[in-house]
Write a protein that binds this DNA or RNA. Sequence first.
DNA 1: CTTAGCACTCTCGTGCGTCGAGTGCCATCC
DNA 2: GGATGGCACTCGACGCACGAGAGTGCTAAG
Lengths: 346, 346
Amino acid sequence: MSEVRRFEVLRAIVEDYVTTREPVGSRMLTERHRLGVSPATIRNDMAALEEAGYIAQPHTSAGRVPTDAGYRVFVDRLAEVRPLNVPQKRAIETFLSEAVDLDDVLTRAGRLIAQLTGQVAVVQYPSLRRSGLRHLELVPVAEGRLLVVVITDTGRVEQRFCELPLRPDGTDGGIVLDDITLGELRARFNAAAAGKRLRDLPTAFAGVVEAVGPELGGVAQAVADLVVDTLGEEGEERIVLAGTANLARSEATFEQGLSPVLEALEEQVVLLGLLTEMAGDGVGVRIGHENRLDGLTETSVVASGYGTDGDTVASLGSIGPTRMDYPGTIASVRAVARYLSRVLPN
Amino acid sequence: MSEVRRFEVLRAIVEDYVTTREPVGSRMLTERHRLGVSPATIRNDMAALEEAGYIAQPHTSAGRVPTDAGYRVFVDRLAEVRPLNVPQKRAIETFLSEAVDLDDVLTRAGRLIAQLTGQVAVVQYPSLRRSGLRHLELVPVAEGRLLVVVITDTGRVEQRFCELPLRPDGTDGGIVLDDITLGELRARFNAAAAGKRLRDLPTAFAGVVEAVGPELGGVAQAVADLVVDTLGEEGEERIVLAGTANLARSEATFEQGLSPVLEALEEQVVLLGLLTEMAGDGVGVRIGHENRLDGLTETSVVASGYGTDGDTVASLGSIGPTRMDYPGTIASVRAVARYLSRVLPN
DNA sequence: CTTAGCACTCTCGTGCGTCGAGTGCCATCC
DNA sequence: GGATGGCACTCGACGCACGAGAGTGCTAAG
């Protein structure tokens, strides 16, 4: 009983099951794949594979179905990389290059993945914590209030209102800053922050607070705190979803119904955790129960980091039933991630 | 055969069908509602209602089910307003007041509606076209490029990159503006735009372009065009969805499966059209086929405009199966719209 | 180690009869 | 004239038996 044929059988099972969506039996297998042996032999191999936990049968006298473990070895050892064809590549390139701003790029990337894979696409916004500060803008909106606009070097723009402290001299009313003062403050902050990473900001800003003197110190401190907060906040990370409708089309796939899946997808925080957790180098695959999330135990997640010059700033990926076309999905996700990385510094 | 009782029967049918999800027959009706007449009488009324097109039977010898028309008269004439209870109101108030910025408010509003109605929530961002300009910010990001940040009086912040024209003197390289010039430009634009509505911007900006002289005129023109474009663009309208998972829970409801529904929800442009179309005064209801959208013929949409001081800037609503709890949904949507209107000018 | 044969097990589709909910109609009653 | 009780009829849901088919495991032979 040769080792290699056994895995060949596993590959055949996975491939057939993925396309037919039905448990595959020994006869079918010999008919559709030139394995050169009889069904009986296959049966022996299947028994061994089942023993090893790679396949299972839904009930006696039904064909075999790959288990999560089976998909795992398929992905790790058996799947061949299947590069996208030229029109597909071109489609990605043109579609992404038409985007006008970051929101647009990411939305388009999502649609693209959803369409290429026929599954749900997930695209994470460039993580604020892994971004640098490109520019800081201060806009007076009302007495005692400032709108702080943070622009990162990944093109993300985040705004937040800042409540200014009361006047230090104790007089009534909120602080109102004139344009000159504001301009100065803005210039100082930007000079201090230029090109810095998040972790270096607190010290850089401390210098600013120091330098502006006691009169403006309170305001500067409030702004500095807000910016550091904003960039550091986990909750402000964002996600784009696309292709949810694709889930419903493969409806019969999910034993538990797709309500738990949809629920999981709405829990953006958890989804984010999953994505960042998976953001290693290259494309990562999580199969079925490898996802700890309850709703996603019947799905697989294929994800990849993206970012300029090897610097991963966020992740993107595709989520679909465990029975998915892994080579195709992996290829699509990787391709979009790469093109996105190239286009990113908008 | 009294007119009023017949409608009473219709109401009973709608209410029962909404709660039991099953076709309702004449016997059940007499048992659960004190109508004071026998099943046979009810049957006569039902025949009349069916004749009038308000109810239908899925097949002979099944109970009756309300038609779209039936729901319509239920909503228009029979439904009693059912105000939310105090804890619900309080929940809305506290949950919305905790929001930190516009994104947050709208996300929370969506979650709220989804949870209150057990259906899908749709929340439209304040329409740019119906907003005024609060502030304009110009940020230099690279040679020949400017980041233009538009802040509306509804709290929306939109950013767009602006390609500057080549230097008028024909020397090489893109235009680079120093801080002083930029400051001046910014001040002029803001002075011109202060408090203006979108439709007045082009003329206001024309003045600015005139005033800055030929040197900066090209730049000013580019910026002005971009701003007017951004605020006028239909595509830039945005929508938040929430509670998609709720759809799956009432899965059996949709004859066609929920894939068409999900598809319709992903078509944000179309959804927007629907919402703006419905934005009259008060809460509007679209039932089943009254929605032209293919995917939504089995659903009803309950929507309301919102906005400060009677000025509708956008809409929000709830989408669910035609067989929904109309009074409850209407109450929830209205309540959230009101609170949102109050909280809005953040 | 492979293969052919064989008995065995289950699922799935089909046909059939029963049950029951619900209807429509008609004669009757107030 | 509207309300009611009675009654025959319709039709889907449910349960059951049965056969077909697909697939397996095992064993003995190549």
